[in-house]
């Protein structure tokens, strides 16, 4: 994506992607309980993109999309992430897919749909990629803001699911105070349809 990165580490790329995505129009719905929350939810949008590793040794983000397969009057707010990224600078098949990024307009955990989506992508791409001799697992990330300032929402953290380790995590923090993680549970899949979540 023009103007974004590239980054040497996925952590730097994630921290940069969070405010960028949340600052898109209607990416946050604010806090529930406010008088017009229902309307805010109705006009909210989800944006999604791939964070990928290139043959040049950098992390990059694909173009953001807000495409959905649903009608505007559908109550759901979803995002249709293409399976692959077309980056003309690199040969097809040379990109390594690491993070499926999106926002949750209201700070909800990763959904059943998110879990199914990333395991489906894992069967298309790789569960773990090797980056400079280190293993980086495929995961899905949902950024959120706790702010009621819809014009300039703060990046307050993200939820993450890593299929190969089963981990469901919540990350909170910022550059000044540092980032902290909380393990919310683990997900164990039996087959394409069925899985168990063990809450911590």
């Amino acid at each position: 994506m023009p103007g974004f990165g590239p980054f040497d580490t996925f952590s730097d790329a994630l921290i940069a992607a969070c405010p960028l995505i949340l600052s898109k129009p209607h990416a946050t719905a604010g806090r529930p309980g406010t008088q017009d929350f229902e309307l805010r939810w109705r006009i909210s949008k989800e944006y999604c993109a791939w964070l990928y590793y290139t043959p040049a040794g950098k992390y990059e983000m694909s173009m953001l999309t807000d495409q959905s397969a649903q009608d505007d009057l559908d109550r759901r707010r979803s995002c249709l992430l293409p399976a692959t990224v077309d980056d003309a600078r690199f040969p097809p098949g040379s990109l390594k897919y690491v993070f499926a990024l999106h926002n949750h307009p209201y700070a909800g955990r990763l959904s059943d749909g998110d879990l199914r989506m990333i395991t489906s992508m894992g069967r298309t791409h790789e569960w773990v990629v090797q980056v400079r001799g280190k293993k980086v697992p495929l995961s899905v990330v949902a950024f959120f803001s706790n702010s009621n300032d819809l014009e300039h929402p703060s990046c307050d953290g993200f939820f993450q699911y890593i299929p190969v380790t089963g981990e469901l995590k919540k990350w909170t923090g910022d550059a000044s105070s540092g980032w902290r993680q909380e393990l919310l549970g683990t997900v164990t899949w039996q087959d394409e349809e069925h899985y168990r979540i063990d809450e911590k």
């Binding site: 996925f10 921290i15 890593i162 902290r180 909380e182």
Partner: peptide
Amino acid sequence: GVNSTPGEPGAS
């Protein structure tokens, strides 16, 4: 958030 620990954002 009571059981949170420091970490590298996004790392397993």
